[in-house]
């Protein structure tokens, strides 16, 4: 029997159903102020600009709840943490009154380089200890618990000693961080690495899940690429339905980053989540 959800331990609100703030939709948003619960904002796109992106974000943040989502924290890298990045991230979070700040369980580069890819971690005790230490440091600098997202991945390391879900659960508990559970990523990785996605979802500490991601992907036959370029397939919605019963209603966000369709198409896709959230407690 599925235990009754109690909500997340951080007290982060269920913001409802949102979509990512994307350049292609700026005009529509500014001219119509559409009815939508919240927006997720790609942090790095707004850190170093005083131009139109920031002008749009300021107005969006005045009218809608926002959460920040980054791609360059490189929490698992063996390079030192980039304190300038974290300082600017905190400034942006304060400026936009972001409900939380998230990034990915991954590394993006070493030796001072940034590949701008979300590269996978080996799931070892060494990597876990390293990531816990850094997640604690990040939360301290940001003055809020960092929220980390499970990645999609295309390689598996031979020397991993635990499955990804165990790594993620232990990281969340030991670093006291929140989780952004990307159900599409679970599906993509389960296909690529042939594991049971339900086993993954059931191992995630429900009280640490503060946000969901949903998205479409591209199935190449031999493997799946997480492209955020389409509608989510039914199997992904089924995983969401399964997980949300464990976590209760949690802020849910639809990502569409390639071949971005009109705003209303993305919003309609996001709102498919409503039927699975109905009747559940936060």
């Amino acid at each position: 029997m599925t235990p009754k959800p109690k909500g997340n331990r951080f007290g982060f609100k269920d913001l409802g159903i949102g979509i990512g703030l994307r350049t292609a939709h700026y005009g529509h948003i500014l001219s119509t102020w559409p009815k939508i619960d919240w927006f997720e904002v790609l942090s790095e796109n707004y850190m170093d600009t005083g131009g139109r992106p920031m002008f749009v974000l300021d107005q969006v943040a005045e009218r809608y709840p926002v959460a920040l989502h980054g791609v360059s924290m490189s929490i698992g890298s063996t390079d030192p943490l980039n304190r300038e990045h974290l300082k600017k991230l905190k400034t942006l979070a304060d400026r936009t009154k972001a409900h939380w700040v998230s990034d990915h369980l991954c590394w993006t580069g070493v030796l001072g380089r940034n590949t701008h890819d979300l590269l996978p971690m080996p799931y070892t005790e060494e990597a876990l200890t390293h990531t816990i230490k850094r997640a604690k440091q990040v939360s301290e600098i940001l003055e809020r618990p960092i929220v980390l997202e499970n990645p999609s991945s295309y390689v598996e390391f031979a020397h991993s000693t635990m499955p990804e879900w165990e790594f993620l659960a232990r990281l969340a508990r030991e670093a006291n961080c929140g989780l952004l559970l990307d159900v599409n990523n679970v599906y993509v990785s389960s296909f690529n690495h042939r594991f049971d996605p339900l086993e993954y979802l059931d191992a995630i500490p429900a009280d640490r899940v503060v946000q969901y991601h949903l998205a479409g992907h591209t199935n190449k036959g031999t493997h799946i690429i997480d492209t955020h370029s389409d509608h989510a397939i039914d199997a992904v919605w089924r995983l969401y339905a399964h997980s949300v019963k464990r976590t209760g209603r949690v802020a849910t966000l639809y990502e569409w980053d390639e071949d971005v369709p009109p705003f209303d198409v993305v919003l309609k896709e996001a709102r498919k989540a409503e039927k699975f959230r109905k009747g559940l407690a936060q």
Binding site: L119, E156, A158, G221, I225
Partner: peptide, 16 residues
């Protein structure tokens, strides 16, 4: 790197 049932280790890292 481990192979998958459909891809060799080299094909898997080639994706990145």
């Amino acid at each position: 790197l481990l192979p998958s049932p459909t891809l060799t280790p080299a094909e898997r890292i080639a994706i990145y």
